[in-house]
């Protein structure tokens, strides 16, 4: 199945990726190939088969006791941040 240019642009937007105009045909072609390829799944007879989200059967979620185990390390953690002030991470203005 060939993806349209618009579909590719829409996916890129959902994924917050900016594709240059010149790149789009390439992605369109690659993604169409990939979509065709995974489309082979259609022929699998999966009637009555439950989806499998985890590779190990029967495991269930473990619970953690409700205890505070972390300390304030924001200065260390913010060393990787591109822009901070007064302990806040900064981004261009968010309009609600």
């Amino acid at each position: 199945m060939a993806l349209t240019r618009e579909q590719v642009e829409n996916i890129a937007h959902l994924a917050r990726l900016e594709l240059e105009a010149a790149e789009i045909p390439q992605f369109q072609q690659n993604l169409s190939r990939i979509v065709d390829f995974i489309g082979e799944l259609e022929r699998a007879d999966t009637a009555g088969v439950a989806p499998m989200a985890h590779p190990l059967p029967g495991l269930t979620q473990r619970l953690r006791p409700d205890a505070v185990t972390e300390r304030d390390e924001h200065e260390l953690y913010q060393r990787n941040a591109p822009q901070v002030a007064s302990g806040l991470y900064l981004v261009p203005k968010v309009i609600e």
Binding site: D66, A67, V68, E70, H74, Y77, S86, G87, L88, Y89
Partner: peptide
């Protein structure tokens, strides 16, 4: 009203200085 967060051991107390209760 838990003491720590749902998926981490950071405190949930209200009113702390910015990002001082945000763990990795």
């Amino acid at each position: 009203a838990t003491r720590s967060k749902i998926f981490s051991g950071a405190a949930t107390a209200y009113g702390a200085a910015p990002n001082t209760q945000a763990c990795l």
